[in-house]
Design a protein around this nucleic acid. Structure first.
Length: 276
DNA sequence: GATGTCAAGGGGAGTG
DNA sequence: CACTCCCCTTGACATC
């Protein structure tokens, strides 16, 4: 078996360079397994991480060598009585590189990594499982952040719409009051003049025609403005408006939308008119 | 001592 | 049925 035959399909180029190095001193190795362990990993075994605070890490092979000699790759190697140790920096770095190539571990790649790093295949599989779990957790955090930002944006938009809605309602209320006040005064004037003309018909008939002529045709042809909900009273009969049930609450959102002529400034998407 | 991280144990489910 | 994956948990260790 060549030093880099099967492994070339699984490891990045930089990693392959590491794998090739040990071939130069095969005669010093006690097993084929060791021939695939990067030279820089040999001397890094047990080296503490950059913090310098953590104690020396272990390698699975070392543990197994101590436990059961040449059976260092056996998955059923018992670790009973063994304490858990962290993988060293170089082992983790190599596993990370391999993980970037694919987060699912094929049996061949697992064997290659186990051989290269001096770990049991079971350890490599477990590392990938835990790594996938960590990746998923981080992905969930990212997704949560995205959703939260979207929610905040929509919430702000909703608040702006509600503020605008309130402003429009106020304007309509003022206009409705003004209209009613004007119509009421017109009615009073009309009644006064009508009564006066009846009592003084014989005396001042010319004023009647004058007063009536001041009343517009439109006002005379329409019934007095009823006290209506704001939006019902001003809503035009727009066939394009979505159908709203007759017993819909007064001032419902749909009615409000129909009563607003130009809302383009309040919709973030350009084709809001298709949003029904 | 509390807390976080990580390797590993173990069970359930899916698959060929 | 062996194998793998996912999920939850445990135990060791590091850090504060």
């Amino acid at each position: 078996m060549s030093c880099n035959g099967m492994a070339s399909s699984f490891f990045p180029s930089g990693f392959m360079f590491q794998l090739q190095a040990p071939c130069e001193d095969d005669h010093q190795l006690v097993s084929p397994v060791r021939s695939l362990i990067p030279t820089n990993l040999h001397h890094l075994r047990g080296v503490a991480p950059a913090t310098g605070k953590r104690s020396a890490s272990f390698s699975g092979a070392e543990t197994c060598e101590e436990a059961n000699g040449d059976d260092e790759l056996s998955d059923d190697a018992s670790l009973a009585g063994e304490k858990k140790r962290r993988l060293n920096v170089e082992q983790v770095r190599t596993l990370e590189k391999s993980f970037e190539l694919g987060n699912k571990l094929e049996p061949e790649r697992k064997m290659q990594l186990a051989v290269a790093l001096g770990l049991r295949p079971r350890q490599v599989a477990i590392w990938f499982q835990n790594r996938r779990a960590r990746w998923k957790t981080k992905q969930l955090e990212k997704d949560y952040d995205v959703l939260r930002r979207q929610f905040d944006a929509i919430k702000a938009e909703n608040e702006a719409l509600q503020a605008h809605n309130k402003k429009l309602q106020t304007e309509l209320h003022v206009q409705a009051l003004a209209l009613r006040g004007r119509e009421a005064s017109d009615l009073i004037n009309l009644n006064k003049e009508t009564e006066g003309s009846c009592s003084n018909r014989s005396e001042n008939s010319s004023e009647i025609n004058l007063d009536i002529s001041r009343t517009s045709v439109a006002e005379r042809s329409c019934p007095p403005l009823q006290i209506l909900p704001y939006f019902q009273s001003v809503r035009p009969a727009d066939p394009d408006c979505p159908k709203v049930e007759n017993d819909a609450p007064e001032g419902s959102f749909s009615n409000l939308l129909c009563s607003i002529g130009d809302q383009s400034a309040f919709w973030p998407w350009p084709d809001h008119h298709n949003f029904h």
